[in-house]
């Protein structure tokens, strides 16, 4: 594991590596969250805590309920039962936009760049407390012009960091898939979140961009933000996460440092099946 200079990451050494383990300073706590679709239980999480200031990966095979769990936490879907809180504030029944305002901002698995808005417009949209977004004030440009200029300055500095500055006047639809992922993440930062929830930030991103995305995510931790991300790319999980949570069939089956989780027998079984190391042909031949 690489060296870090913030306090958030050191928790990994002292936290027990078992599902639902308590963290020293949790920013997000979830209890007894279940979500059923008809007869299928998509999510059934007993207890989960996310350490403040850490990068936590949420992994699991396809259909494990990771994205559904994300949707529940961010208010895009309502659970059948359970409670969860962010910074001590209960989030039950809180609509998505209010969750975002509280400081928990998400991105989407299928990138939601706003295609017929330019890149800079996408960015500016994310800024909080815009006077010009009030319907009455919108017709008096002098009320919001100064604030808009500040927003643009902030947006350009983030875009520059994400190497999208030269694209700022292009429609978002003109960006490549990887650039859209970058834009979505950059846009989320405009909201000044405390916690960033990234749903498969690496899907469809080419290796060169991947490296810069990784750097951006690490930078978020340096700034003291908490990151929770869903990912299939194990290299990435290994490289940047302080803590890994493994879901399978809606439940959390393991937690721990990346190294410990990848050696966990249950995790290997969840991904590859219980009898993955048996030679099938041998069996058939017998």
């Amino acid at each position: 594991m690489q060296k870090r200079n913030d306090g958030g990451a050191s928790f990994a050494a002292t936290t027990p590596m078992q599902p639902g383990s308590a963290k020293p300073d949790p920013i997000l706590i979830a209890d007894q969250i279940t979500r059923q679709f008809g007869g299928l239980t998509a999510v059934n999480v007993d207890h989960l805590e996310i350490q403040r200031g850490s990068i936590t990966a949420l992994i699991g095979p396809n259909g494990a309920g990771k994205t559904t769990f994300f949707n529940l936490l961010t208010g895009y879907d309502a659970p059948n039962s359970g409670t969860w809180s962010f910074n001590g504030l209960p989030l039950n029944g809180i609509p998505p936009h209010k969750v975002a305002r509280l400081g928990m901002v998400r991105t989407f698995q299928l990138t939601k760049a706003l295609y017929r808005l330019t890149v800079i417009e996408n960015m500016a949209l994310g800024a909080r407390g815009q006077k010009g977004e009030s319907v009455l004030k919108s017709v008096f440009p002098w009320i919001w012009r100064a604030q808009e200029a500040e927003i643009r300055i902030k947006a350009t500095s983030i875009l520059k960091n994400f190497k999208l500055l030269e694209k700022q006047d292009d429609f978002a639809a003109a960006l490549s898939g990887g650039q859209r992922k970058l834009l979505e993440m950059a846009r989320a930062l405009m909201v000044e979140p405390e916690m960033v929830m990234l749903d498969e930030p690496m899907a469809g991103v080419n290796p060169a961009l991947k490296q810069s995305l990784l750097e951006h995510i690490k930078e978020l931790r340096t700034e003291g933000k908490t990151v929770l991300f869903v990912e299939h790319d194990m290299d990435m999980v290994h490289e940047i996460s302080d803590w890994v949570i493994v879901m399978a069939q809606g439940e959390i089956i393991a937690e721990g440092t990346p190294a410990s989780v990848m050696g966990n027998q249950q995790v290997i079984e969840a991904y590859l099946g219980a009898h993955h190391d048996l030679d099938l042909s041998e069996k058939e031949g017998a």
Binding site: P95, H97, V105, A188, V191
Partner: peptide, 8 residues
């Protein structure tokens, strides 16, 4: 949904 995720 993207707009909601930005707190609007």
């Amino acid at each position: 949904d993207a707009v909601r995720s930005l707190g609007k």
